[in-house]
Amino acid sequence: FEAKWDHASTLKKVIDAVKDLIGDTSWDCTNTGMSLQSMDSSHVALVHVLLKSEGFESYRCDRNVSMGISLNSMAKVLKCAGNDDSVTLRHESESSVVNFAFESHKEERVSEFELKLMNIDTEHLGIPETEYDSIIKMPSADLRRTCADLSQFGDSVTISCAKSDVRFETSGDIGTGNVRLSARGSSDKPETEIAIEMINPVSLTFALKYLNFFTKAAPLSDTVKLCMSNNHPLCVEFPMPEVGYIRYYLAPKIDE
């Protein structure tokens, strides 16, 4: 297995976006790309990352391999790469390590690191294809700010989607808060658009703690998609055009 990115920045951001939620995980490498699927320790959230082979500068995977890696260790290794350095990952069949090589574009500095692989049981959850009742596309910075603001007042947020607006509400010991975002088009700046596709109205409650973990992916993508159906996990997708995506799933809180 050998995969090269032109710039380390994307991989650094991907690891930063998931390492606090899932500690150790397996990267599944096939000829179509690298992916991981992992639950957080409390089994409430699920992370799915896909890095497509087309998004790499060069990519080769002769035999499918599952590489068990501590994401904190991977973040440490990636700290040694400059944002504009190229990154090459190499793993040979049956080897217990993965190699990272970083090269500056002027080629005057090359650094190499070897990370020990871990044995990790890989059990994947089956994520069904779902027709969601409501899909909201919005700037990722808006979601990050909304979740951070509401976290000051409560632990949970109720997200309600109607035809032309989406409402985030919370309440706690000191009071209540809500943020309403209305659909807005923008032909010249599509990344600032708020688009709401509503088949059925949805209202779901989630723990803000997890949403705040998810919005760590905001530096990867200007936009985010919230896909919701009643009594179904929320899907928060940060698309990376040409490269892949990070999808987070979160179980809703249920009424007693």
Binding site: M39, V44, L46, L125, G126, I254, E256
Partner: peptide, 14 residues
């Protein structure tokens, strides 16, 4: 606070 079921309730292990 309302209970939060594990994600496997919705997406069982394959």
């Amino acid at each position: 606070t309302n209970p939060q079921p594990p994600i496997e309730t919705f997406f069982p292990f394959m």
